[in-house]
Simulated assay, not measured.
Amino acid sequence: MTTTDILNRFHVHMHVADLDANIAFYTQLFGVPPAVLKPDYAKWLLEDPRVNFAISTGKAGESGIAHLGLQAGDAQALSAVGARLQAADSIALAESGTTCCYARSDKFWAEDPQGVRWEAFHTHGEATSYYAPGAEVPTDTCCGPAAPEITDSAAKPRVRSGNACSPASGCC
């Protein structure tokens, strides 16, 4: 199978104030229950439209779109998206073998000219926790680089391997 044969998926992640009410709403809207359901997170992997739609409790008092993204069908497709982001001088953070959102993934984080955060990723396994195992997670967590890091396009992107979304890794 070539990269052009791999079906990639559009990704939307929203922070919500009331997880249960939003799970009920989106289950009705999409006509199917979440594919992944955790106490602080839910994800629908829809085929029509082909989208990875996730919601989480996020930071207290924060709701709305957390980030948009492209879920690559394989590592080669992720490399192609990463090359396009690099050509746009937009990569703020590259992650390898990271644990976030109950999954193990490789990722590129970027920001568009309006300040919208984008995550390009290839998931290669499930995880039993939202963040890296053993990570002490503060209440203002967010996967990806901190805002000042993203907005400085002249800065060299950070590269991190494993242990994402933990204070020690600088993700949160």
Rank of each mutant, 00 (worst) to 15 (best):
P167D: 08
D89R: 14
L7R: 01
G82I: 08
W118M: 08
V16L: 05
D5I: 04
T98Y: 05
L37V: 13
D48H: 11
E111N: 02
S129F: 03
D112F: 09
D5Y: 06
S129M: 08
L29N: 04
Y130D: 00
S90T: 13
F53Q: 00
L70S: 06
G64Y: 09
D112T: 03
K43M: 14
C142K: 07
S105D: 04
G115I: 09
T123I: 15
S153C: 03
P148T: 09
A103C: 10
W109K: 06
A42G: 06
M14K: 05
C142M: 09
T98V: 13
E47W: 04
C172W: 11
A146C: 00
H124F: 15
C100K: 10
H13L: 11
F30N: 08
H124Q: 06
K156E: 11
S63D: 08
V137D: 06
A21N: 11
A120V: 12
T141V: 07
A66T: 12
L68C: 13
P133E: 02
V137E: 04
D18F: 03
L37H: 13
K43P: 04
S153T: 15
Q28W: 03
V51S: 00
I150V: 10
D140I: 03
A155Q: 12
T3R: 12
G58S: 04
G69N: 05
R160L: 02
E126K: 13
L7M: 00
T141Y: 08
C143V: 15
G31D: 10
L70K: 01
P49V: 11
P148S: 01
G144H: 09
T98C: 14
T2C: 11
R104K: 13
A147I: 11
L37E: 15
Q114E: 12
R158T: 10
A17M: 05
T3M: 10
D40V: 15
T141K: 05
E47K: 14
E47Q: 14
E47A: 15
C172V: 15
E149G: 08
Q114L: 12
K156V: 14
V116N: 12
M1R: 14
C165S: 13
A120M: 09
Y26P: 02
I91A: 03
I65T: 14
V36K: 03
L7N: 03
L19K: 01
D89E: 12
A120T: 10
D5N: 10
K156L: 11
P138N: 08
V32G: 00
L29F: 15
T27H: 07
T2N: 12
T57L: 12
P33D: 00
R117M: 03
P39R: 04
F121C: 04
P157L: 07
A80Y: 09
S96Y: 11
Q114V: 10
V116E: 00
T99E: 07
E126C: 01
P133Y: 03
P113H: 14
A168G: 06
I55C: 00
H11N: 08
S63Y: 12
L7I: 04
A35G: 10
A92W: 01
I55A: 05
S63I: 08
A24Y: 00
A120F: 07
T139H: 08
D18W: 07
C172R: 02
P157K: 09
L46G: 06
C101H: 07
A154L: 03
V32E: 08
S129W: 09
L19G: 02
T139W: 07
L45H: 06
P138F: 01
Q86A: 14
Q114D: 06
G69A: 04
S79Y: 05
V36T: 15
A80V: 15
A87Y: 02
L29I: 14
V51G: 04
